[in-house]
Design a protein around this nucleic acid. Structure first.
Length: 575
DNA sequence: AAAAAAC
């Protein structure tokens, strides 16, 4: 293990300038990706208007890159005409999108009473809602020029104090859509706050992983820069500083994972009775069985009568959405694009690898050819993440990294930091990375292990293709995965990539298998949640037993990964 | 079916 850490960190030093030059090495694959998309467009014939971005992508992104502007403006206008009245402006630009690629345009649908009109620009928000010039300045200095769809529609709703259920694809700027209204409301305290503007925590943001909470916290800090709000990333350490009520009263915003917050509520070191804004990010995840009771406890603790709640996600299975709608008051529901559909900017494909032992050789072959780093590789368990990383390092793959929740806090933070600095070329991770994490440079996602739900698939591949960039997503499947192939294939087809005919013709999976894919019935959803009481805390001896089990599992995973026929099938691309 | 989430 130590040797692995040394190897994975030592490796070849990676400096950014060199990287820029190396990029030329990898153009082969990016051409392949775009070719794949053209094929997909041909194959799938007529696409729904909101999905037909290919023309746009070619006219916009490509022509700019090739310094050949022909047809660019025309494509844009053409698009506008075709989409007609429902379509809303949505060019995203952010600090990272220096390539100048505009975001594709999506259809936006809003349901609810008295839906406020969307805002075409951040300046319009200033005119209509007196958005503070301080926030505007921070937007501009961070490179945010135009609101994305979810921002132009969601921000007015939140600024008017309405509850919101927002569904918008991965990488379309959901975080900023609630960051701005929350900061704005802090700046102009609601009338009922009376004497005390500083009466403790007034906004809570929940996220399912520490990494995501950290990232959200950073986004708040960026937008709040220059103001002296106290925005706290809740952790063991920060919670300990808040045992004193005076310290607590100075906190304005808390970003946290659910269990951490519940722990503080239960030991009485936290008050949430003055919380005016509560956001559930990755809400469908937070409302699934494992988190639901914790989240409900937090919601109950936010006892102020004028609390505003908002839920955000790229996916929302019916059961989770029902639960969400039940906890919102007179909500407005916004959907950007099509629910549960990845961005067409992500070129998706399936690769048949017959069995477990064929995966590693297939991946090694792939990584021995020019590819586009950084690549994120998803596996199904912590031991598999560790052992795959070891195997890649043993096989001489440079700059391999690994992130899962079995690592220490510091190891996790370091892995994220290396990813942000561009030092990781190959990042192997579990579901912990699947949601929300915004690494702007990710060019490719490989599902080394088949995702266990369509939601997981959508979020995993959403690590690439962010903020208007193109991305590539490859999913390995074995014979054993075949029964679960159809729902994923449907998602791929719906978002405009192509799927081989034999997969398209697979029968629908049985009810039992569908459930395994995450389409849990509402009844199951609630029953499961009830069984997990709020006092159902992990006991220390369980954790010790767990860690022992993990070690044994890692051993088994290593053996399995090398496999009996590690030099067998190379796997083949079915495209 | 496994992951994640406190101290």
């Amino acid at each position: 293990m130590e040797a692995f850490q040394l190897l994975s960190r030592g490796g070849i030093k990676f400096d950014k300038n060199r990287f820029k030059e190396d990029v030329r090495l990898f153009t082969k694959d990016s051409k392949k990706a775009s070719k794949g998309k053209q094929v997909a467009r041909k194959d799938s014939g007529e696409l729904p208007a909101e999905l037909d971005f290919f023309k746009y992508a070619q006219g916009g992104a490509f022509s700019k890159r090739k310094a050949d502007g022909t047809g660019d403006g025309e494509t844009h206008d053409d698009k506008r005409r075709r989409l007609g009245g429902d379509e809303e402006s949505e060019d995203e630009s952010d600090a990272g999108s220096s390539s100048g690629q505009p975001m594709p345009r999506h259809r936006v649908t809003a349901k609810g009473s008295n839906v406020p009109e969307h805002a075409e620009s951040f300046e319009a928000l200033k005119e209509r809602y007196q958005l503070s010039s301080h926030i505007l300045a921070n937007l501009s200095s961070n490179g945010f020029k135009h609101p994305t769809g979810i921002q132009s529609h969601g921000i007015p709703i939140l600024l008017e104090g309405r509850d919101l259920a927002a569904i918008s694809p991965t990488g379309t700027g959901k975080t900023l859509a609630y960051t701005i209204p929350i900061l704005q409301c802090l700046g102009a305290p609601v009338a009922s706050a009376k004497s005390a503007a500083g009466t403790g925590v007034r906004a809570v943001i929940l996220a399912p992983t520490k990494e995501l909470a950290h990232q959200i916290h950073n986004e708040f800090l960026r937008m709040a820069e220059g103001r002296k709000w106290r925005i706290v990333l809740f952790s063991k350490a920060t919670a300990a500083t808040l045992t004193d009520k005076n310290a607590r009263d100075k906190v304005d915003i808390i970003v946290s994972t659910p269990l951490r917050l519940v722990a503080s509520l239960q030991n009485g070191t936290l008050e949430l009775s003055n919380v005016r804004q509560l956001v559930l990010d990755e809400a469908d995840r937070l409302l699934d069985a494992e988190f639901l009771s914790q989240v409900q406890e937090i919601v109950a603790a936010c006892s102020h009568t004028s609390i505003q709640k908002a839920v955000f996600s790229a996916t929302f299975p019916a059961g989770a959405e029902k639960l969400a709608m039940e906890m919102l008051r007179d909500p407005i529901r916004i959907v950007v694009g099509l629910k549960d559909t990845p961005l067409p900017l992500i070129a998706q494909s399936l690769t048949y690898v017959s069995d477990e032992s064929s995966k590693l050789p297939t991946l090694l072959t792939y990584l021995s050819q020019p590819y586009n780093p950084p690549v994120v590789i998803f596996v199904s368990s912590q031991p598999r993440a560790t052992s795959l990383a070891e195997e890649l390092i043993i096989n001489g793959v440079p700059n391999v990294d690994c992130l899962h929740a079995g690592l220490t806090k510091k190891e996790r933070e370091d892995a994220v930091a290396r990813m942000r600095k561009g030092e990781s070329w190959v990042m192997i991770s579990t579901e912990v990375m699947a949601r929300g994490m915004d690494f702007k440079g990710v060019r490719e996602v490989i599902n080394y292990d088949f995702p266990t739900s369509v939601q997981s698939y959508i979020h995993r591949i959403g690590r690439t293709g962010r903020a208007g960039r193109e991305g590539k997503a490859v999913t390995y499947f074995t014979n054993e995965d075949a029964p679960f192939l159809k729902p994923i294939a449907n998602v791929i087809l719906q978002s405009g990539s192509s799927v081989p005919e034999w997969i398209r013709k697979l029968p629908k999976p049985s009810k039992m298998k569908r459930r395994a894919m995450g389409k849990v019935q509402r009844g199951d959803f609630v029953d499961k949640a009830r069984k997990i009481g709020r006092g159902d805390v992990i006991k220390k001896r369980d954790m010790i037993a767990g860690s022992k089990r993990r070690k044994e599992k890692a051993e088994r995973a290593r053996a399995e990964m090398r496999g009996p026929g590690a030099d067998g099938d190379r796997g083949m691309e079915v495209d």
